[in-house]
Structures are given as structure tokens and as C-alpha cells.
């Protein structure tokens, strides 16, 4: 009996979608496969301003639909990627990019982690250097003489 249920479950599961299902249901038409790929890639790279944690591809938000339509229009009009990115930036700012542009305002965002890495690295380097220096310290001639003296006195 349990085996039968198992087979049923597996059977049902195999009916499920094999490719990931996206929330969007747009039916954009493209002239070439390359245009379609560009559309995919660009909609993946922009963040939906309304839902914030989804790309334009995965969002059903009204504004995401509109922006996908705009991207489609721009691709069909042979805009370059840079032009499309500029279009988005002029309207929605840095927020629209999952990978924000390198600008004065975003320098800290890009290189902040690097600063932490460098500072942390320097601290560790210092600690290691100091402990090395401490362990490798040898006595000067004068010190050695004093030590021997002390040892001799004891015996």
C-alpha cells in the first residue's frame, strides 16, 4: 500500500515542471535568438523597484511589467546595453542595478569590504611579525656575558 502511494507521489512529481517557472507571462516577440537572450539577461540584471528583492524577470509588479516592455522596445530599436542601462539609471538611480555602477557615491559600497580586508590583513601581519621577532630574539654579546655571570654565581 505504502509502495503504491510512493509510486503515485513520484508519478505526480514527475509531471511537475522541469524548467524553472517564472512569474511573468509576457509574450514578447523577437526577431533573433540573440535579442531574446539579451532580453533575458537584462531583465535579470535590473531589480524591480517595487518588490525590491526580485529582478525584473521574476516580478509580477505593474512597474516591472512596464519596464520589461520598455527593455523589449529598446532591444528591438537596437539600443546598446549601455544605453538601456543609462535609461534605467536616469529614472531609477543606482537602486535599479544589482551591480551598482562605480561612482563617487558607491565607492564605499564597492571597496568598503576591501578596506576591511586590508586593515585586518595589516593587523594580522603585525601580530605575526611581532611574535616572530619575540621568539627569534637573540642575546647580544653583553647580555650573554651577564647571563653567564649570573649562572656562574649560582653554582
Amino acid at each position: 500500500m505504502s509502495r503504491l502511494i510512493m509510486i503515485l507521489i513520484l508519478g505526480l512529481a514527475s509531471l511537475g515542471p522541469i524548467v524553472p517557472v517564472y512569474a511573468q507571462v509576457d509574450t514578447f516577440e523577437f526577431d533573433t535568438a540573440e535579442q531574446q537572450q539579451r532580453f533575458r539577461r537584462l531583465s535579470d540584471e535590473f531589480r524591480c523597484p517595487m518588490c525590491q528583492n526580485t529582478s525584473l524577470t521574476g516580478s509580477t509588479g505593474g512597474v516591472a511589467e512596464d519596464l520589461r516592455r520598455e527593455i523589449h522596445r529598446m532591444i528591438m530599436d537596437d539600443w546598446t546595453d549601455e544605453q538601456i542601462e543609462q535609461f534605467m539609471f536616469d529614472r531609477y538611480g543606482d537602486f535599479i542595478f544589482y551591480r551598482p555602477r562605480l561612482r563617487a557615491e558607491t565607492v564605499l559600497l564597492w571597496f568598503g569590504p576591501l578596506i576591511f580586508l586590508v586593515v585586518g590583513g595589516l593587523v594580522i601581519f603585525n601580530i605575526v611579525r611581532k611574535s616572530r621577532a619575540a621568539s627569534a630574539e637573540t642575546l647580544s654579546e653583553e647580555e650573554q656575558r651577564q647571563l653567564n655571570e649570573l649562572l656562574d654565581r649560582k653554582s
Binding site: 523597484p49 517595487m50 505593474g62 512597474v63 512596464d66 520598455e70
Partner: peptide, 13 residues
């Protein structure tokens, strides 16, 4: 209707 002006204004809802 199609949200075109909205996009130019950076509106998201």
C-alpha cells in the same frame, strides 16, 4: 494607461 510617463518619472507605484 501604459505607465510610460510613470517610468519617466521613476514611479514604482
Amino acid at each position: 494607461e501604459d505607465g510610460r510617463l510613470g517610468i519617466d518619472l521613476g514611479v514604482y507605484g
